[in-house]
Each structure stands twice: as C-alpha cells, then as structure tokens.
C-alpha cells in the first residue's frame, strides 16, 4: 500500500510535469518522454495478449456532449459527498449565434469565490490605487505599507471555471482572483498563491503551464492551465483503469509498477518534496469486472472530469477531497 501511495504521488507529480512541458527541450524532459514512450509500448504489448478486451485506441479526448455529461456527474457527486464545501455548479452559456448548433458545449462548470488565505502583503494592488504623480498621497502611501507589514493575513477570493476546449477536446481550468474589496489580483499575486511546487514549475515554464488568456466564453483575461498535455495524461490513466479491470482484485497494476520505476528517476527533482505533504488520494481496493470495453469506456467517460480534477485542481491549490473517489467507485 505504501508503495502504491508513493506511486500515486509521483503520478500526480508526473502529470504536473507533463502539463508544464516546455517548448525548450531539457534533458529530464527527454528522459521523461522516453519513459512515456516505453510505457505506451509495454501497454500495447500487454494489450495484444488480451483477447476481445482491447478498448480500441481511445485518445483521451471528450466530445462536447460527453463533457456536459461528465460535468453534471461531477456536480451531483460533489453535492452528495461534500455538502459542507463550496459547490461546483453547471452554468448554461447565454445563447449566442455561435452556440446555437447542438454539437458544441453549451455550458461550463463554476466554483465561485473560494477563500484562499494568503500571507502576501498586497502592496502592489494597493499601490495601483495611487497616481504616481500625485505627491499629496505620499504620507498615506507609507501608512498603507506600514499596515501591510504587520503581517495581517489577507483573504483572496478565487473563482474557477471548467470550460470545454474545442481544439484539444478536453476540459480546461480557468481561474481568477480578487481582493475582498473586488479589485482583481495581478499575475504576481496569483503566482504567489499557487502551491510551492506549481510556483516552481510555473517559473520554469511560464508560457506553457499557467498563462493569462481570454476566457473563451466571457472574453475577459483569465488565468488558465494550458490544456495541451491533458489528452495524453487521461489516455495513460485510462490505460491503467483498463488493466485494473483485467486483474480482478489484484490491486497493484503493471502500469503503477512502471510509475514506481519513474519515481526512482524523478526523486532527484526538488519538487518531489513539495508534493509529499499533499493530501493522499485513496484508491479503492475493489475493482469491478466489466463485461465489455464499450461499457467500461462509457463508465470511464462519466468520471472523466472527476479524474482530471484529481491532478488539475491541486496544481492550482484547489483541494479535491478523497471521499469523492471512494464513493464514486
């Protein structure tokens, strides 16, 4: 069990690294790509020996219709398992000319005004309130900074949206932060509110991990996790799910053993330490035998967003309670 938990931790880290893959090629990314390639090869080697069980070549993407189904499944599961937490809701898009066709996503998930304690001193936001040319405010300016230096904890309010990305055909996480008085948080403040590991990754891969871009439905600047690695990650996770179904009651799959091998390589990374304190994700030790791959895929698709959130949300500091996964089995 401990070995498995460690493997899952490294799976989370691996996914964060995949998310943050930089355009600039580095040696560890090269090694990681090779390992990923080996995993795929070994998966297909195993798969070919399983008669009538191969699920085809699912590429880790969702259709817009499946996105909505998975999103509504998340809303109901979250409501049932976590009534004490802020709730995800499904927001229907206001009808526009471009959303009138049926094969495009008609809504998105919203998690509104989550409080995040911040030990930052919001000097930059406060300074924006003063015109640099106005000398009369100098005294007040100093007073403000003095108050900030007392170490009073600020409460930042974050709103999260999960929107379907038409190009990558995967969910995409958007976030926006603001102070309690309503003024928006700037890039530096949002970055400092991230978990330490994500700050590290974001510093290294500023343009490919967390970027500021127009919200596709609201057309305002929001921060977003880049979606280009999501389908590959979900394909790998599904592969593991498939292997679980094969070995009835056998908990540790070959895929996770491969991940253990990866963890040996990745232990050299500093970021591992920052992830060790993260809440453990418990995986049920019971697996259900499936009659056919189509049924299995349909069940998997329904839990797509739930699974995707297990690594996408912690990357930006949103905790996903483990009981969601126990009860959703």
């Amino acid at each position: 069990m401990d070995k498995l938990i460690a493997a899952v931790d490294h799976l989370v880290f691996l996914i964060s690294v995949c998310f943050a893959r930089s355009w600039d090629f580095t040696s560890w990314a090269d090694e990681l790509s090779n390992l990923l390639g080996n995993i795929s090869i070994r998966f297909w080697e195993n798969c070919s020996s399983i008669r009538c069980m191969a699920p085809g070549t699912w590429d880790g993407t969702l259709t817009a219709e499946e996105f909505e189904r998975a999103a509504l499944h998340l809303v109901s599961t979250w409501e049932r398992c976590c009534p004490d937490l802020p709730q995800w809701t499904w927001q229907t898009s206001t009808k526009t000319v471009l959303s009138s066709t049926s094969d495009h996503a008609c809504g998105y998930l919203v998690l509104q005004d989550v409080r995040v304690s911040s030990d930052q001193k919001d000097d930059m936001e406060k300074l924006d309130a003063y015109d640099d040319d106005d000398d009369g405010d100098d005294v007040e300016d100093h007073a403000t900074m003095y108050v900030g230096s007392l170490g009073v904890n600020e409460q930042h309010l974050y709103t999260y949206h999960v929107v379907y990305n038409e190009s990558y055909r995967v969910p995409m996480l958007f976030l926006q932060g603001r102070l309690q008085d309503g003024r928006p948080l700037q890039w530096d403040s949002v970055l400092r509110d991230l978990p330490v590991g994500s700050q590290h990754v974001s510093d290294q891969s500023r343009w490919t991990f967390l970027t500021q871009e127009d919200h596709p439905l609201l057309h305002r600047p929001w921060f977003a996790l880049h979606p280009c690695g999501t389908s590959e990650i979900m394909r790998l996770v599904f592969s593991d799910f498939f292997l679980q179904g094969k070995k009835d009651n056998v908990f540790v799959s070959e895929q996770l053993e491969e991940l253990s091998d990866i963890s040996a390589v990745l232990e050299k990374q500093d970021t591992c330490e920052s992830l060790s304190g993260r809440e453990k994700i418990t995986i049920s030790d019971r697996s259900v035998k499936w009659d056919n791959s189509e049924e299995r895929l349909a069940s998997w698709i329904e839990k797509y967003i739930l699974t995707w959130m297990s690594f996408a949300c912690p990357a930006v500091g949103v905790a996903i309670p483990s009981r969601l996964y126990i009860e959703s089995k």
Binding site: W23, D59, S167, P184, Q186, T208, Q212, D214, R220, P221
Partner: peptide, 30 residues
C-alpha cells in the same frame, strides 16, 4: 487590465507558439 491580457516580455511570441501548437493538435492530434 480588465479587457486586455498582459503583454510583456515575449508574450507575443508565446501567444503565436501556443496557437501553432493548438493548430497542430487540431490537424494531427498531437
């Protein structure tokens, strides 16, 4: 800042690169 995304350092270049990656994914799946 309420309407326009920040444009500093090499933001224009990376906006282009991310669009290029997106187009590549649309056409070829990766």
């Amino acid at each position: 800042t309420e309407v326009l995304t920040l444009c500093e350092d090499e933001a224009v270049k990376w906006n282009f690169v991310n669009a290029l990656k997106e187009a590549s994914y649309v056409m070829y799946g990766n």
